[in-house]
Amino acid sequence: MRVRPAIDPELLAALSVPRVAPWLCAAVVDWLVVVAIFALVAWVDHPVAYALAVFPLGSRQQALGALFHDAAHHLITRRKGANDALGSVLAAWPLGLTLGGYRAYHFAHHRGLGTLDDPEMAHKGGLRQWHLPAAPLPVAASFAGDLVLGGIPHLVAAGRLTKPVSWRETLGIGAFWLGLLAIAYRAHLVWIPVLWIVSIATVFWSGVRLRIWTEHLGTKDTHRVVVPTWLAHAIMPHDIGLHWEHHWFPSVPFWNLAKLRAALPGPRVTLTELARAFLTSAPLPSGTIGETIDAEARTMGDEATVAAAGRDLDRLRYAGHVAVPLALGGFVYLGFRPKLPRLFAPLEALGFRGGLLEGYLPPRFVDVFPDVAWAYALTALLVLVWGTRELRGKLWIAVGPGLAAGWELGQLAGIFPGSYDLADLVFGVAGALAAVVICKEPALSLSPAAPAPKAE
């Protein structure tokens, strides 16, 4: 039985008074950032800039999501008409949602939390991607898949769950988007709504996926998560990560949630502790109800689960720190250089022509980047193979920056072919050293949850 945390009623009443100004300020700042992103992209006018813009845009869409969530709870102002007008035009409609439709879904989520009446369970059950224990590779693959529109089935499902509840709403959002597209068309700026929609379907959705993980998975309650400030700004803006506080006291607007948290004692967990618990949890299939993770992120997973999660995490580290930089370096080297060296003659015999993308990136970058990426990949491999404790491991690891430096210095001395370049030397060594710093400690270690080794 969940017990509502005790709070001074006067404090709760004071924290629950809606005010337009903080909401409107946040909305205006978020939109100014969005305008600045579009202006910057238009000014740079480079394919890479358009592609990368989805990350900051998706981050601001999360921010608008937090704001429309407050609007759905009538937390902008007590005047319903004004609340819904502001919430719709500045936050909900631009995200393709209507307040009425979202309320029907979201209030059922509040009422049904911890039971199969929660419509979020229908989503988790239908698109079964929230299994416990979490398997690192499929989870990483689903986040990566979001970036290539893998989230579309989820958005369709979410659209069904939050369908507009009235003709007025349907007309409102329809007119909003038709008007917007007409203006964009007349102004020859159709790329702006297109980029906006692509961003919703990729990075924005990815953020929602993450919140589905961190909010209620493995508990019938809500995880009380502590998110580092910088990360909160990027992926859980406007204190939308203070979801435990919100679920217990949904009358408190977002700009008072931090004060509410300060007034309520009790355990909190970091994202890292929660991730560790997900990886080692007792089984709980996606879309089913159960308590496998407690308020302090402790779980009951067995030794085999912990061992399997550890192996998967290791594979993920090799993939991320060795294979990905190796491939990125190769992509830039083969795709953007005018001529391929002799090493790649077999590729040319197979009909591959290098330099298809020549001119799309600054030539200096094309020169230096593969060296940096490859120096990083080699050194990361050595760090992952050896760890940094033993002397023989350290000696092997030193070969990474040593090779990067020795190669360029050898060119300077005329020992190796090719031309010496100070930038190659500096950035190559920096790439290798970065690998040591970054890979020395795993970002996520299972050791605190893992059982102690048995004495023999």
Binding site: L340, F344, P370, W396, L403, W407, F416
Partner: peptide, 30 residues
């Protein structure tokens, strides 16, 4: 007592050799 080679030495040697070859090969003129 038999001497056993730690397989990590072999992996490291192969990786370093592969990268050295990559460097030499990509520096050679087309």
């Amino acid at each position: 007592m038999t001497m056993r080679l730690d397989v990590r030495h072999l992996v490291s040697l192969l990786a370093v050799a592969a990268f050295a070859l990559l460097a030499l090969g990509s520096a050679a003129a087309p």
